[in-house]
Design a protein around this nucleic acid. Structure first.
Lengths: 218, 218
DNA sequence: TGACAATTTATACGCTCGTACAGATAGTTT
DNA sequence: AAACTATCTGTACGAGCGTATAAATTGTCA
């Protein structure tokens, strides 16, 4: 029942904790906070009821923990991309910024392991919810601001609020694509194809949208 | 306690039913299906528990009724705009199509009565939910198909699936704007201004996105 | 080995939930 | 006025909920 890390430290509880968080992530992503009970999370994780409370605290605390667990990984990936772009000699392009912001999410959401896909769906759910977004959305804001700074350097004449709106709509488009693949396939009358066929279309859409807003905002 | 219609017919139950549906619409929009109990809907509507069941049926049925109640009005407004565009002599422009599809929703969501605003938020919530969208999203599909047809006429070389994706992202952007006005104001560091300042920005973004997808899709 | 801390089990409490239904009330019809 | 139907009230039931906690178990370390 035990697992050993590479450095030899033994952890019994830490592995259980991860299982609980994974189970909560899957269920919350699929059905939302209110539809999922702690008992179902326990069953999904293969532990007893009390263990969820022991590792996760209250239901709200557990939910917040799930939401916060992967923020740093995403922020780091986006920051790395931005740093990479700034380090290179060639001029910064708007397309690179859009790509740099969307790709870390899309990679995890489409090709990565199921847990990341669940997390992506969970974020898509949270973003239209006044009850949860204020608690967690702010964690993504600092990096968004860095990208907004870069966008502002690129299009100095455009009011920042216009860029904010454009980036918000970009994020919304990104999240909706994760949640809507099946629907798009249905509307266009064919089966869902390979993994994330729509990535290029998404980037084209967002880039075109941002450029149009920039042009419109003088 | 009674109300009389213009034609003299007396209706006791119908007015109550509307009150129940209005209350359900407000609460479901603000907090979602699972977070709202029938008892709270009853209290919000100022009726007793049993009345909600009498007029609304089961909780699921009530929810579906709320979702379906305003579909026809939106579909009719969109169809009317499309017919108007087709009747005029000038060439059909992509901008007109985007405007025609978005405006009925935006008008209701921003300027209309609070019930319509609640409905708009409810739809924004539903669209990222696999549990509910299949039951109700299809009601909007026929009109979406008509707009897709018009878009296809305008850009015959573009694969229909690309247009479907572009329209889906457009709708997602529209819905997110309703749900995100406060957040955009926060990110850009100033107070929320007048009603729906972002409407032009939204249309510019979606139009630019669609054109970019059309160009990208050959 | 025995004490100690971390973890897991099992159970209980008070609450709210969705649903159902018998009876009261009111409007309409005969 | 009496019968009838639509609407509303009040109450009850069983189930599941989040949370707390005492006891059992396990692993660690003196």
């Amino acid at each position: 029942m035990e697992e050993a890390t590479t450095d030899g430290r033994v952890l019994r509880g830490e592995a259980t904790r991860e299982r609980v968080l994974d189970a909560a992530e899957r269920l919350f992503a699929a059905e939302g906070f209110d539809a999922v009970s702690i008992r179902r999370i326990a069953a999904e994780a293969g532990v007893t009821l009390g263990v969820v409370g022991f590792h996760g605290g209250s239901k709200q605390k557990l939910f917040r923990t799930v939401l916060e667990r992967r923020v740093e990984a995403l922020n780091a990936a986006r920051r790395a991309r931005l740093a990479e772009l700034r380090a290179q000699d060639a001029t910064l392009e708007m397309r690179d910024l859009v790509d740099g912001y969307l790709t870390p999410y899309l990679d995890h959401a489409s090709r990565g392991d199921p847990q990341w896909r669940a997390y992506a769906r969970l974020i898509a759910r949270i973003v239209s919810d006044d009850r949860w977004y204020p608690e967690v959305g702010g964690l993504y804001d600092p990096v968004a601001q860095e990208y907004l700074d870069a966008m502002h350097e690129l299009r100095p004449g455009v009011p920042r609020e216009e860029l904010v709106t454009a980036l918000t709509l970009t994020v919304a488009s990104m999240l909706s694509l994760v949640a809507s693949r099946a629907r798009i396939a249905g509307l266009s009358g064919r089966e869902a194809g390979g993994p994330m066929d729509y990535r290029e279309t998404l980037i084209a859409f967002c880039l075109g949208g941002i450029e149009a807003v920039a042009a419109h905002g003088r």
